[in-house]
Structure formats: C-alpha cells, structure tokens
Design a protein around this nucleic acid. Structure first.
Lengths: 245, 245
DNA sequence: GTGTAAAAGTCAATTTTTTAACAGCTGAAA
DNA sequence: TTTCAGCTGTTAAAAAATTGACTTTTACAC
C-alpha cells in the first residue's frame, strides 16, 4: 500500500540525513513543541487510533492545523495528502528526533524528596532514559534502594562514572553544592545536566548541555495569570453597559 | 534626588493604571522572561548591588541589552537615562507585576514525594505564597506535619476551602484522580491550578487559570540537545580541513 | 556652572514565528 | 474508471519578537 512506500521513502530520507550529517534545521519554537506532540501521539496510540489528520490533532491540542502541518513538515513528509498522518509512524519519527532511542544513561545527584520523587515518576523509562543510580553526600544513605535504584555515596562518583557510561546527571542536591559537583560531572564526561536547583549554570559552555528547570518561574507565571484574570473580571464587572451613545 | 522623583512619578503612573484598569499589555514573550529578571534582581540585591545598567545586566543574563531595555519599557520608565536601573525599585515593581505581594494562599493535593519536595523547597515563601495545608487521599497520613504544614484527609477539602481562602492548588496526586479533584477545586472557588501530573487539563476555561508543569518535556529537550551536540561534534571531527582548493 | 561620557528610551529594520490560502495528491464511493 | 471530498505540502502574507541605530536625558568630573 502507499503507506508502506511512504515509510520506506522517509526512511531513506532519514538515512540520507545521517549520511550527509545535514539534519534539517529545526527552529527553537518547533523544538519546544515537539515533546508535546510526543505526548499527544503516545496518548493516541494507547487509544488505538492509528491515523489522524492535522485538523483533528489541532482540535485536540488546541493549536491551529496550519501550525501542525508546518511543524511536522520541517523534517519532510511525515504525512500523506488525502490520508493524514500515521500515528505510529509519526510517533516513531518524533521519538527518534528527540533521542528517545538513544538509550542514554542517567544518574541522580541528591537523594532527597525531589530526587526520590523523580525516580518514582515513570518519566525516565517512558523516554528511554535508564537510571543507573543515585548519589548522596550523606554516606548513611548509601546502599538504600529507591524504586529499584541504589544510592551511592557521592565520593564514589568518579569511580562510578569510569565504570559506567553516564550521559545525564540530574541535579537535585543543595544549591550551594551544585557548581562544584557540576564541575566534577563535566570532568567525568557527562554530556548533559538537568538542573533543578534554580542555580543558573553557565550557558555557553561547549563541553556540556544544560537544561535548567525553574519551578519557581512557573509558579510566578501562574501568579501573574491569576492576577490578570482577577483584574479582567473586576474591570468587566465595573464596566457600564454602553448600549446607547 | 532625581531618583526619588522618579519613584514618585512611577508610583503615580501605576496608581493611574490601577484606577483606569488599563494595565499595559505585556506580550507573552516578556511575561515568560519576567520571572528570570525577578531572580537576577533578587540575586543582585543580596550582593548589595543597588544600581545596574542594561548592558551590565545583559552580560550577566546572557541576553542583549536592547532586549532588556525593550522589555522593561513595556511598563514605562523603570530606569533613568544616564543612571541605569535602581535594583531595589525595579525588583519591587516586577514583584508587584508578578503578584508576589498579592498574598495568595495555596494548598497541595497529594502528600507523596513530590508534594513533600515542593513544601521543602523555599519556593512558595520566597514568592509570597502561603501554604495552608496538604491533602492526601490516604486518611492514614492525616495529622502528619511536613515542614510545618499539616496533612488533611482529602474528603475535608470542601470544608477546608469554605473556612479558608484558597487561591492556588498544587496538583501532585495520581494522574487518574486529577480531573475529578480539579473539578472539585474549581467548585470550591480556587483560582489557579499548578498541575504537575502531565495530564493536560482543559485550557480555555474561563473559571480557572491552569499552569501545567511538564517535567518530561524538559527532559526530552535535554535529550534532544545532547543528540544535536553529539552530531555536531561528530561532524566537526569528520570534516576535512579544507585549506586549499 | 559646564562639558562629556554613559545610559535609558525610542524608533526602525530585521528576523522569527504564526496564520492563511491554495495547489496537487489520494482514497473511496459511485 | 472516474469523480470528489479530504488532506498534506507549500508558498505567501501577517504578526510577533528581536536586534540595532539613534535621540535625549542625566550624573558626574572638572
């Protein structure tokens, strides 16, 4: 059927990208949206939906169909005119773009509540990231297992990294210790830091990728939006209905 | 001195806004950046820096000075030509815009690791949000105190909200329970939901403000960036230095 | 006082992002 | 087999965001 042909074609295209190393440029705006597509497609799959049009997806995701078509077209023909998008195929492609299949290994630094919470959320496994262990400065915690993940003492970090391929480190340790540990991690050859501690780690470094999670920022935006809505309502309530001039 | 005059003037301006309800429109791009300004200004304050120019701030924040001036100018003259910005004053203004002084009250639904982690992070108090309590479906947890916050059984939610002004609810309870609880919260008159559970709550509702925190999305973007950097390096390594034609 | 360097404010140009329109496929029904 | 409705890919237009250049104001040194 035509769909299989499409798949083959697209695979060739992707192979081509790899060969020439000319992965198409993806604008930041699109990159930021990709995880959301990923989530929705996964949801569609669990619902057993195998095919979807941009307009239906747009209704579900509350964005314009035009944007979806534009976004997905960055990579080249995932869809098929007159048919729509094959959910499974699209999901696979986006997964690959996002590196779900890369099989990265992660460690969590800091076995406090936050670290523990992150282990429990099925976040990592869902995204193909394997957690190798947790580390904590408190040696008393060493040996404890949380959700199947063992806690190691922090001083064993270098040794551990030498024996295991560690790609990502999740930073949930006290703020003041972050910079020093980050430095150690870079030396160990860790490729990315996922930083929860609000410390603004130096961008612009060439040897490490940093993703800062600023939960507080999110709270402030919620705050702001609530204020705004309250004002709107207040204003609307005050407003005199001006039917006549 | 001229600065005091500026402050007075700006205060009048803000009063004016309030009176006429014509708070200036702030573009989404700027709103997203405001919490970051907030953080940097707070940091400057703790360092005892009382005055800063757009160019110096731009160097610290790694953005263009032009953007800073443009952003801050949305609200009208926070700075002073030839002088720069008064850190304390600017911080106060941005705090107010973000609703730090609004004195919102919050509750946390779900006393699992995540809920506990959030209580411990000094996030709320730093932003002027007061946590009144935590709720958990497990009645066995009722009465326990975490960081000075008491856990209540979930069935007391309505009663509690009737007796206390609750503005914000933080959702850290199991995914499947989120929609039902959200509905109850809206009925209780809660104004904003801070949702951690990846469930995509219906936007576009008029009766509630929703801020979704998608930690998984952040992880995927980290993943993606690592992949990209690896590819770049790989490519750079392969590249033949073409000095001669 | 006065001149000057420094800085915000402002406007215009540029770039990026989003939206709209439409041409051309495709699958399915008649 | 042919037609047609539905859908993507594509292009162009519009809107939004960012950057750069210029104007005006101010503090400060002399």
């Amino acid at each position: 059927m035509a769909y299989e042909e499409l798949e083959k074609q697209a695979n060739e295209l992707r192979e081509g990208y790899k060969e020439h190393g000319t992965k198409p440029y993806i604008s930041p705006a699109v990159v930021r949206r990709l995880p959301r597509y990923y989530r929705y497609l996964r949801e569609l799959l669990t619902q057993g939906i195998t095919r979807i049009s941009s307009s239906e997806l747009s209704a579900r995701m509350n964005v314009t169909a035009s944007q979806i078509r534009q976004d997905l077209n960055c990579f080249g023909g995932f869809g098929q005119q007159g048919y729509g998008y094959n959910v499974h195929y699209l999901f696979t492609c986006i997964s690959e773009i996002l590196g779900v299949g890369a099989g990265f290994h992660a460690i969590i630094i800091g076995a406090g509540d936050l670290g523990r919470a992150l282990v429990h959320l099925s976040m990592f496994e869902k995204r193909g990231v394997d957690i190798l262990g947790m580390f904590d400065a408190d040696p008393g915690m060493a040996g404890i297992e949380i959700a199947g993940v063992t806690i190691y003492p922090l001083h064993e970090l270098e040794q551990f990294c030498a024996q295991n391929q560690v790609d990502i480190a999740v930073l949930t340790l006290p703020k003041e210790d972050v910079p020093a540990v980050a430095e150690r991690l870079v030396k160990c050859g860790v490729k990315g830091l996922w930083n929860y501690m609000g410390v603004e780690l130096d961008y612009s470094r060439d040897d490490i990728v940093i993703e800062n999670v600023h939960l507080g920022d999110s709270l402030m935006i919620l705050n702001y939006e609530i204020c705004r809505k309250m004002q709107e309502k207040h204003k609307a309530g005050q407003e005199v209905p001006e039917d006549e001039e």
